[in-house]
Amino acid sequence: TTVKLGDIKVTFDNPEKAKKYAQKLAKIYQLTVHVHGDTIHVK
């Protein structure tokens, strides 16, 4: 599962960890989390 934020891409083996990371980023940057299959976009 890949978390994308602009040019930053972080890949996790564990989808749950990816989701938590995405939510953490979203909170920090006051953005929202969008899940598209294996990719989680923070924008």
Rank of each mutant, 00 (worst) to 15 (best):
G6N: 06
V3M: 03
A26L: 05
L31M: 12
H41E: 14
G37D: 05
D38T: 10
Y29H: 06
L5C: 15
T39R: 03
K43H: 12
E16K: 10
D38V: 07
K27V: 08
K19R: 12
I28D: 04
K24R: 12
I40Y: 08
A22M: 04
F12M: 03
T11N: 08
K19A: 10
G37E: 06
I8F: 15
T39P: 02
V42G: 01
H41G: 02
A18W: 06
K24I: 13
D13W: 11
I40V: 06
K24W: 15
K4N: 06
H41N: 06
K24Q: 09
G37V: 04
L25K: 02
A22N: 00
V3A: 03
H36N: 11
A22R: 02
I8Y: 15
G6I: 07
A26S: 05
A22I: 07
L25Y: 03
V33S: 02
A26P: 00
Y21I: 03
Q23E: 12
Q23H: 10
T11M: 12
V10C: 15
T2A: 05
Y21R: 01
F12K: 00
V3W: 03
T2L: 07
V42D: 01
K17T: 12
K17E: 13
E16T: 09
K20H: 08
F12A: 01
F12I: 03
V42S: 02
V35F: 11
A26Y: 04
F12Q: 01
A22E: 00
G6Q: 05
G37N: 06
D7P: 13
T1G: 04
V42T: 02
F12T: 00
V33E: 01
K19E: 07
K43L: 14
H41C: 13
A22C: 10
L31F: 07
T11Q: 09
T39W: 07
K4A: 08
A18T: 01
V10D: 01
N14T: 10
L25C: 12
G6A: 05
T11Y: 14
G6F: 11
P15T: 06
Q30E: 08
G6R: 08
K27W: 11
A22F: 04
P15N: 06
H34V: 14
D13K: 12
A26I: 04
D38H: 10
T32R: 06
G6T: 04
Y29F: 11
Y29T: 03
K19W: 15
T39M: 10
K19T: 07
H41L: 12
L31P: 00
A26F: 05
V10R: 09
I40E: 01
V3G: 03
H36D: 14
K20A: 13
A22P: 00
L25Q: 01
I40Q: 02
N14W: 06
A22W: 05
T32E: 09
L25M: 07
P15M: 11
K17C: 15
E16A: 10
T32P: 02
G37L: 06
T39H: 07
H41Y: 14
T32K: 08
D7R: 15
K43E: 10
L5P: 02
K4Q: 13
L31E: 00
V35M: 09
D13Y: 09
Q30L: 07
K43I: 14
G37K: 05
T2H: 09
T1D: 03
F12L: 02
K20N: 08
I28K: 14
Q30N: 14
V42E: 01
L25P: 00
H36C: 15
L5V: 11
K9L: 13
H34D: 07
V33H: 01
K27Q: 10
K43P: 03
I28G: 01
Q30S: 11
T39L: 09
V3E: 02
G37Y: 05
